[in-house]
Design a protein around this nucleic acid. Structure first.
Lengths: 347, 347
DNA sequence: GGAGTAATTTAGATCGTTCCAAAAGACAAG
DNA sequence: CTTGTCTTTTGGAACGATCTAAATTACTCC
């Protein structure tokens, strides 16, 4: 039962060639004759050979592995991001190491170290909350290409791919203002992240532009989750002057806000306008369909992967910060007419 | 900038010992003297040494990598499963290769092959729909420990960890019957999976046990997603004799069913009883909170990982099929009283 | 048939670690 | 001072691929 490992030497013997030739066949070199190649491939199949990447890797120091580190995989946004990365990376012949940090910096340090030991040729990181440039310094110093995604870190000196959070928030708030809202809340999210800061700034700027002032009590932080949304809206509705609309930190919060509204017998969309951020898959099929700022997580994952692969290919490219555009997708949760909702559900 | 790689030999030189000693220190052997160990560790830190697992791996043929293959990462259930696996696997000093097949068997074949090339010491697989025992045969023959999770495959000859889908469905339907429902639908899911088959059988058995017959038109399949749930309930409500309650294939479908009910101005829980399956995190915080059969995906991931690690440790254990128990969690969507809903939201 | 060129093939060193067997040192007992 | 027992340390051969430079074979054209 304990089968001996089949190696290139075994195949070489079986096919009557040298191991060098087998190696050439394995890497698809065009140097080798058609008949020889066929013979070798036949032996490979026959003996059930499994390529040993550790060995190859040892010799050539480039591994066909890329690592992806996300801060919270149970959040649909990041899961989709990972799927986008996976798609691109796989079709380029790479395989991905995925690790979840659960927002723990210590864990993040561990997984990054582990990935370096495995010789990843590049790393896509959505950093845990509170990650400092110093935390990434050893990684960056090693010269491994790194792309930060979603959350940028000032002074880290690596490429980043973020979404235009400021513009998205501005667009959302403008839309609410156009629909006549005057008391607009900003709900959910942790205030210590760059993403929160940017969205919040967009919210303030758009209100200022409309000549509205920004009452502090209308900015209510919470966990960026569905449960957090429920508590945030509860708090908002206890104010003496209640808001009539809210821009939410992300879609999860927005769903929570809808839940909280229903709990008070208010209908999201009709009685209170809700706008989310991210456009996760569920946003479209929820009832009411969620108006949200589309960030296209899967697309972001794909672009991040492409950027990383380019850097891996180019050896050493200098860091670039890409801000990908977003667009407001108007659906029903902000008060748009409701008649054709079911039609919008994809088949 | 192009730094030379630091190897054990460099450290040996710096610390004034042989590379064998350095190697012993690296593996934490107790054979080496305390002072020597300290000297070596100092040099390691000083030179910024990074362990090369490919090299180690080449020599000792056991890799500290386990692979996890899931069929749909964008589904919260599987993302949570992956997180559970990750937690256990990491703390055992392993790292996980995660790949998403998106229910494509061809892709599944590719990623499994790729994982074997990387020398994973074990594999946790939630197989894509339609996977046959034959698809896994080469993998199984190689002797790598494999644990199938969520979906078992008859005749594959490997261990599996599934949930007690039959018992869960029975409990759910019994509950609905006790609450007085007589026309109970089974909504969503693809009929060609073992999971569907088991839940469905539980549904039928419980109805039979209550002396109710099972009208074919009340079993309505659909994609196991939120969108699928919307279409399934639409279809159910077009019947001449409408159901008053439904057991859904999973939570995503159940949420879709709630959406679809609202679209018809029916309140889930009050006007129609809905029960889901899986108990994803959102089930608790949704409004109305979803009554569902708790499967605890994260816990399943953890148990699957533990089972796999045990098999890796034991060399060759024989296949065992573990069915993990489930329990019905009664919340509001099946018509329970509604007053304390907000209290149940976790802080 | 031989020179020149192009197409294939190959021996052998090499990558960075672990393992084995054996050597070296330390110490106690005779 | 030898011998024996422990504790530490070590050289050198693996592991399974790739790479380099050189060797071999095949072909073309006088």
């Amino acid at each position: 039962m304990a089968k001996e490992r089949v190696t290139v030497v075994d195949i070489a013997r079986a096919a009557g060639v040298s191991k060098s030739t087998v190696s050439l066949v394995l890497q698809g070199s065009r140097l080798v004759n058609e008949v020889t190649r066929a013979k070798v491939n036949a032996s490979i199949r026959e003996l059930g050979y499994v390529y040993n990447r550790s060995a190859a890797n040892l010799r050539q120091a480039k591994s066909k592995i890329i690592g992806i580190v996300v801060n919270d995989l149970t959040n649909g946004f990041f899961a989709e991001l990972a799927v986008g990365v996976d798609a691109v990376v796989q079709s380029a012949g790479f395989v991905q190491f995925l690790a979840n940090t659960g927002e723990r910096i210590e864990r993040q340090r561990e997984v990054i170290a582990s990935m370096r030991e495995h010789g990843v040729s590049g790393l896509i990181v959505s950093p845990a909350r509170g990650t400092q440039a110093a935390d990434l310094a050893p990684l960056v110093a090693s010269g491994i290409p790194v792309v930060l995604v979603v959350r940028d870190i000032a002074g880290a000196g690596v490429s980043s791919l973020t979404s235009d959070n400021h513009a998205g928030a501005v667009a959302a708030v403008r839309h609410l203002v156009e629909r006549g809202h005057r008391r607009i809340a900003f709900l959910g999210g942790f205030a210590d992240t760059a993403v929160f800061e940017a969205r919040m700034r967009g919210y303030r700027d758009a209100l200022g532009e409309a000549g509205l002032d920004v009452p502090e009590e209308l900015v209510i932080g919470s966990a960026p989750s569905r449960a957090g949304g429920v508590t945030a809206i509860e708090q908002a509705m206890m104010l003496k002057e209640r808001p009539t609309a809210a821009l939410c930190f992300n879609d999860a919060v927005a769903f929570g806000v809808c839940d909280g509204l229903r709990a008070r017998r208010l209908e999201p969309g009709a009685d209170f306008a809700v706008i989310g951020f991210d456009d996760v898959i569920e946003a479209k099929t929820a009832v009411p369909a969620l108006t949200t700022v589309s960030v296209d997580p899967q697309g972001m994952g794909e672009r991040a992967a492409e950027l990383l692969l380019k850097q891996i290919g180019a050896g050493q490219a200098d860091a670039q910060a890409i801000v990908s555009p977003v667009r407001l997708v108007v659906r029903q949760s902000c008060g748009a007419p409701i008649e054709h909702r079911v039609k919008e559900v994809s088949p």
